[in-house]
Simulated assay, not measured.
Amino acid sequence: MENVVVLLGWKEGEGLDPKQMKAFLSTNVSPTNEKILSYYSKRWAVETYFRTAKVYLAMDRYQVRSTQAIERYLTLLMIVSVCCIYDSRGSLTDGLLHYRSLKKQCMIEYIYYLAQSGATLAQI
């Protein structure tokens, strides 16, 4: 490829172990090495958010066709994310796991109260 910058990074003192090395590729050759790494460090938070949204919020399995539907869906994902991050004081994954645990607990309580009131298994 022409006009590409490849930056290789590793922790100081660990030698050139390929398993510890990180590689960064940029097709924009004008910024300095430090600026390219700065862009990647900011982008990493975005990448991890979308990975978490795909794994835990089924973002990759939901299909919509219109721009408006996509915007609404992404807005809902962002609201859920903010609530989970706020509730867990900083971790989206911890917040999601907490809410899933609460959901299971509520479901068990609901089934318990129905059973206590004499509901049959078919009714539950």
Rank of each mutant, 00 (worst) to 15 (best):
residue 61 R to L: 04
residue 79 I to G: 02
residue 60 D to W: 02
residue 77 L to E: 07
residue 35 K to D: 03
residue 69 A to G: 01
residue 10 W to D: 04
residue 85 I to R: 12
residue 48 T to Y: 01
residue 36 I to L: 09
residue 40 Y to E: 06
residue 54 K to C: 07
residue 33 N to R: 09
residue 65 R to N: 02
residue 27 T to P: 03
residue 12 E to G: 08
residue 25 L to T: 14
residue 61 R to M: 07
residue 72 R to Q: 11
residue 79 I to H: 11
residue 26 S to M: 08
residue 80 V to S: 08
residue 76 L to Q: 14
residue 60 D to H: 09
residue 49 Y to D: 03
residue 13 G to D: 09
residue 21 M to P: 08
residue 70 I to Q: 06
residue 52 T to E: 11
residue 64 V to E: 02
residue 20 Q to A: 14
residue 64 V to M: 01
residue 13 G to H: 07
residue 46 V to F: 02
residue 17 D to S: 15
residue 25 L to D: 00
residue 86 Y to P: 01
residue 59 M to R: 03
residue 9 G to A: 14
residue 7 L to E: 12
residue 11 K to D: 05
residue 26 S to I: 10
residue 81 S to R: 02
residue 20 Q to V: 08
residue 62 Y to D: 05
residue 22 K to Q: 15
residue 46 V to M: 02
residue 73 Y to P: 00
residue 60 D to V: 01
residue 65 R to Y: 04
residue 71 E to W: 05
residue 43 R to I: 08
residue 45 A to K: 12
residue 55 V to N: 06
residue 27 T to L: 06
residue 68 Q to C: 01
residue 13 G to W: 04
residue 85 I to L: 13
residue 6 V to E: 15
residue 31 P to M: 01
residue 7 L to P: 09
residue 48 T to F: 03
residue 27 T to Y: 15
residue 42 K to C: 07
residue 19 K to R: 15
residue 81 S to G: 09
residue 26 S to Q: 05
residue 66 S to F: 04
residue 64 V to F: 00
residue 58 A to P: 01
residue 86 Y to S: 09
residue 47 E to K: 08
residue 35 K to N: 01
residue 50 F to L: 05
residue 16 L to M: 12
residue 13 G to C: 08
residue 56 Y to T: 02
residue 14 E to M: 10
residue 44 W to N: 01
residue 49 Y to V: 05
residue 70 I to D: 00
residue 21 M to V: 11
